[in-house]
């Protein structure tokens, strides 16, 4: 497999959210504003790519019996780095994301990629796989938050798109709307991209 193929497969063909249904919790929770989604996505890309890289580097030294402990430790370390960075440099966003940054540790995508790919492949391939999975996740988050912010606040990235005539749909601001949007999004992807029968 070429590097490009690895990226394409993990970002699109085997996308963690719409194909493997992983990382749903945060996809529902932090998608009310596009800025939050973008920063969450960048945090996941960073933590995922680097932890996959590190796990892969250490894979031949890691005893099988404790590999999951080691993976969790590595993932946690990178997530804490993201958390410290956000708290120091973008505190407003850090406050809005609240506990969700720390919860990247428990995001199934990270353990999933670590187990499925990084623990058996070369470091550079793992880095690219991690990047791809992170980009795929961010993409889904951005699609959902695009719809939610547009209809819920009448804005995109905080910039007003609709004028004063627009009445905000409060359902879009609340978490339940993400359930519907995510489900519809997966449905569209299944029909259009995988050509599954609806």
């Amino acid at each position: 497999m070429t590097k490009k193929e690895i990226f394409k497969i993990s970002a699109f063909k085997e996308n963690s959210v719409w194909r493997q249904i992983l990382g749903i919790c945060s996809a529902l929770a932090v998608t009310n504003l596009m800025v939050n989604s973008l920063i969450m996505g960048l945090g996941v890309i960073f933590a995922l790519a680097l932890s996959c890289f590190t796990i892969s580097l250490l894979r031949s030294y890691t005893p099988r019996s404790i590999r999951m402990m080691v993976q969790t430790l590595i993932i946690a370390a990178y997530v804490i780095i993201v958390d410290i960075f956000l708290r120091a440099y973008i505190p407003v966003v850090s406050k809005q994301l609240g506990p969700y940054v720390g919860l990247i540790i428990t995001n199934c995508i990270l353990m999933g990629r670590a187990e499925a790919f990084a623990s058996q492949n070369k470091p550079l391939d793992s880095l690219i796989d991690g990047l791809g999975a992170g980009v795929g996740y961010t993409l889904v988050l951005l699609v959902i938050s695009f719809i939610r912010e547009l209809f819920g606040f009448g804005s995109l990235f905080g910039i007003k798109v609709f004028g004063d005539w627009w009445t905000n749909w409060s359902i879009m601001v609340m978490a339940p709307s993400a359930f519907f949007i995510l489900a519809m999004f997966i449905w569209v992807i299944n029909v259009k991209y995988y050509k599954n029968k609806a």
Partner: peptide, 13 residues
């Protein structure tokens, strides 16, 4: 192995 790796990562953090 676990001890060493814990020390390294905690140190970095």
């Amino acid at each position: 192995f676990m001890l060493v790796i814990s020390f390294v990562f905690v140190g970095v953090l």
